[in-house]
Design a protein around this nucleic acid. Structure first.
Length: 581
RNA sequence: GCUCCUGUAGUUCAAUGGAUAGAACAUUGGUCUCCGGAACCGAAGAUCUGGGUUCGACUCCCAGCGGGAGCGCCA
């Protein structure tokens, strides 16, 4: 038996091949192999039950027949249980071989490499310029980055694109405020982005109270869109100021984009959207606006997708269509993943339906389109955290608070470290905690923001996983031994803790596969946490520094492998680790 | 009104239609001559209600109740 990663696939095939030789089974038999509860084995196949039901046969007898026809192997034991479950238990020998073969990041990556790597655009983060990022903006950035890393790890070519909201009505208001207050953008003080936000707030209040101010703001916007030199140069400065404030956050979060093509980039590319959709009669004029209806859809038959406003201006829908077109034509994107708030689900559903018709009519290949949506971060009132009322929490403040709390803990445990080292550790631990808090739960759920939740460092948290990694480093330091091995004397697992930890290690590829299938990183988090728990338990029960070379090498191997999986897995979540903490 | 999401221990979360629903925090009892106690081992505690489908339902369907979101010129 090969030690290829996909053991589920292996057992599925094994069962199908055997079933083919038996009259009792037919082509429609699906073994339904999955990882098993520890009590029953390592993998279980449940497919005989529904098949027997359909064929009108006794499931237990049918399972027994299939089981009898399976080839014998040294690598696993097979058993029959319950109404017809087939359970496989891998031999300690096999587990040892698997562990030896998958001890490094590279070998893990090879094991999960996609058979058909493709070019994938991940569209995430996408803040609006002229505004600060607050806690509500953290999800897209963190989830998007993790998905990009998970896919890249499997060999896909990833283009990370930050689709900035840098072109829109907010600039009319902002320009109005700048001119009314006669502000110089070169001299905004220490926190220019905060100052811009104040100006926006001022402008917003002005246009609400004064009709002529509103008119003025619209004129400024028109001038900007018509290429007025002064407004364009102000706009560029606003963009620069915003970008440098975003960059501080991206540096902290270790996020790097390949492109930051915002909405402004597509402002001269919207014409083709109008002509394309018009030529193929996909859109129509309604109430003066250009809209798309989807008669086959229960809701979008009547709920329009507005691609040109009645005043002739483009909007979100227009630029998204132009963007999609650009990514397909210029980048040959085969898949596009949009990471945004779940409240935009209607928009993306309409976008995808429209794009399908448009590309179909023009016989262009449509990339696979995924809307990876996430729940809203709520305030204490159970409503979305809003910038308007109350004190919105700035993202940068959250990150700094996380580092501050972590540094207090680090200092408390290591009194004589240099400031530099304390800061380094605090950054890894604090930011890891924040990222993990968000990634470890199903992205589709809303949650109420709490400092306690985002900054938790005990229990199912990043620091717990980082602690396991640091402990393993410590073992290898103490033994003056290379964590990468080799461990030539290692024997197969014998004790309970050894077996359980070995067994846990082989499920890493499955966890990754599941996270990929649903584009949900929390499956990976859950797995890593369980692995770390299994390790802590092992570590507590079994001494690594023993005299017997076979035992010592096995335990060192398990430490090494665990460390490798934890570091690799955390890396895919964008979380760093430390040698000591 | 229409559509979508959601309801699991006191709290925050897990569970590709599979066997005894799994954690963390909080509560509580242990482990310390230990390779790092940011740890380990134990106790107690949960599927909103009512129907249905199924060999099997937290999961699928229907109805109700509760929470949230979207629905014509914002993004």
């Amino acid at each position: 038996m090969s030690t290829s990663f996909d053991l589920v696939h292996f057992f599925d095939n094994l069962l199908i091949e055997s079933a083919c030789t038996l009259d009792e089974f037919s082509d429609s038999f699906d073994p339904q192999t999955r990882s098993a509860d520890e009590r029953f084995g390592d993998f279980q196949a449940n497919g005989v039950l529904p098949f027997a039901k359909k064929a009108g046969k006794n499931p237990r007898e049918l399972a027994q027949t299939l089981l009898d026809s399976l080839p014998h192997s040294q690598d696993w034991e097979v058993g029959l249980a319950g109404p017809g479950f087939i359970n496989f238990s891998l031999s300690p020998d096999f587990l040892l071989r698997w562990t030896l073969d998958h001890g490094s990041k590279d070998s893990l990556s090879r094991a999960v490499r996609s058979e058909s790597p493709s070019k994938v655009v991940v569209d995430y983060s996408s803040p609006n310029t002229a505004k600060q990022m607050h806690v509500g903006h953290i999800r897209s950035t963190i989830i998007g980055e993790s998905i990009a890393r998970i896919l890249a790890f499997q060999g896909h070519k990833i283009l990370r694109d930050n689709h900035l909201g840098d072109w829109g009505t907010q600039f009319g208001i902002l320009l109005l405020a700048i001119k009314e207050q006669n502000i110089s953008l070169d001299d905004l003080g220490d926190d220019p982005i905060a100052k811009l936000e104040d100006l926006y707030r001022f402008g917003n209040a002005r246009v609400k109270e004064d009709e002529s101010a509103l008119h003025h703001a619209r004129q400024e916007l028109v001038k900007l869109q018509d290429g007025d030199q002064e407004n364009l140069s102000l706009w560029e400065k606003i963009r620069d100021i915003s970008m440098s404030s975003f960059q501080k956050i991206y540096d902290l979060l270790d996020v790097q984009f390949d492109h930051s093509l915002g909405e402004s980039f597509y402002r001269d590319k919207v014409e083709q959207v109008y002509t394309g959709l018009s030529d193929h009669q996909i859109c129509q004029v309604d109430d003066g606006a250009l809209v798309v209806f989807h008669p086959e859809h229960k809701r979008f038959a009547k709920q329009p997708f507005i691609i040109r406003k009645s005043d002739g201006a483009s909007n979100y829908a227009t630029t998204d269509l132009a963007t999609l077109c650009y990514r397909q034509q210029e980048w040959q994107a085969e898949q596009i993943i949009y990471v945004t708030d779940g409240r935009q689900r209607d928009h993306f559903e309409q976008l995808f339906l429209t794009a399908k018709k448009w590309f179909g009519a023009e016989e262009k290949s449509l990339p696979i389109l995924d809307h990876v949506w996430f729940g809203t971060i709520l305030g204490e009132d159970n409503k979305a955290i809003k910038t308007r009322d109350g004190q919105p929490i700035k993202l940068i403040d959250l990150l700094q608070e996380a580092m501050k709390r972590a540094s207090e803990m680090v200092r408390q445990k290591n009194a004589d470290l240099s400031e530099e080292e304390i800061n380094h550790r605090a950054r890894v631990i604090g930011l890891g905690a924040v990222k993990y808090a968000d990634l470890s739960q199903d992205r589709t759920l809303d949650y109420v923001f709490s400092w306690e939740k985002m900054l938790a460092m005990q229990g199912n948290t990043a620091p717990y996983l980082q602690y396991a990694v640091a402990r393993i480093h410590s073992i290898f330091r103490k033994m003056e031994c290379n964590p990468k091995g080799p461990f030539p004397a290692a024997r197969p697992a014998e004790s309970d803790p050894e077996r359980k930890l070995s067994r846990k290690l082989i499920f890493f590829p499955l966890a990754l596969k599941q996270a990929t299938r649903e584009l949900k990183p929390h499956f990976l988090c859950t797995y890593l946490y369980e692995l770390a728990t299994e390790f802590s338990s092992f570590y507590n029960q079994e001494k690594v520094m023993v005299d017997d070379p076979a035992t010592r090498d096995l335990r060192l191997l398990l430490c090494s492998s665990t460390q490798s999986v934890l570091i690799t897995g955390l890396g895919l979540l964008g979380i760093d680790t430390l040698d000591e903490m």
